[in-house]
Every structure is written in C-alpha cells, then in structure tokens.
C-alpha cells in the first residue's frame, strides 16, 4: 500500500469526517470533550501497537487548544481528524504485522 494511497486515504477520510458536524447544530463543550476522548483512546491503542504518527499527536494538541479556547466546532473537527489518523496508524500496524515478511531480503 503506497504512501500516496495512505495520504489520499487520510485526506478523503478527514474531508468526510469534517463534513458531518457542519450539518449538525454547533458542537457543545461536551461534544468536543467526547470527540477528544475518543481520539485519545484510539491513539492509545496505536501506542499499544507501537505505531503512533506525529500528525495524530499534532491534531490532538490542536483539538485540546481549540477546546480550551472555547472553539468547540474546531475542537470536534480536529479531534475527528486525530481519530481518523489514529485509526489509520492502527490499520497500518496490523497490516505490517504480516506484510513486513515480503520486504525481507532473501
């Protein structure tokens, strides 16, 4: 799975994710906190698989900052992006668990 696919996958996923809240009413503080908590849980799972990404950490930090600044919509959107990134890193870890054998020099 080439890196371009992953990057496009991330982009498509995040765009899809970001559209959802626009339709819903403005996010509240609890929505933002819930979204961030979910993203952190996913990132922790990626941590267990020893495969976290730097962009996920950056997005989590941005989400927390948006939450603190009271920008709940931004916080939810960024938290969802972090969540998507964390999920992708988990998927990468699981796939690589089997695929790495193919790259071994024999």
């Amino acid at each position: 799975m080439s890196s371009a696919a992953v990057r496009r996958g991330t982009l498509a996923l995040t765009v899809a994710m970001m559209l959802a809240p626009a339709m819903a009413a403005a996010a509240t503080k609890t929505d933002a906190e819930a979204a961030i908590a979910a993203a952190r849980k996913a990132e922790a799972a990626a941590g267990v698989l020893q495969n976290q990404w730097l962009p996920t950490e950056a997005a989590l930090k941005m989400a927390a900052k948006a939450l603190a600044a009271g920008k709940y919509d931004a916080a939810v959107a960024t938290a969802k992006r972090a969540h998507a990134l964390a999920e992708l890193s988990i998927q990468q870890a699981r796939e690589q668990d089997k695929l790495w054998h193919n790259e071994v020099v024999r």
Binding site: M1, S2, S3, V6, R7, T10, N51, W53, L54, P55, L85, L88, S89, Q92, Q96, D97, L99, W100, H101, E103, V104, V105
Partner: peptide, 14 residues
C-alpha cells in the same frame, strides 16, 4: 527494520 511506519508509510528498508 522491515515494517512500514509513519504517515509517509516507509520502512527503514524502503
């Protein structure tokens, strides 16, 4: 060494 990692999805071997 052979596992792809990170958002750029490269392994050390790549």
């Amino acid at each position: 060494f052979y596992s792809r990692r990170g958002q750029l999805n490269f392994s050390c071997a790549s």
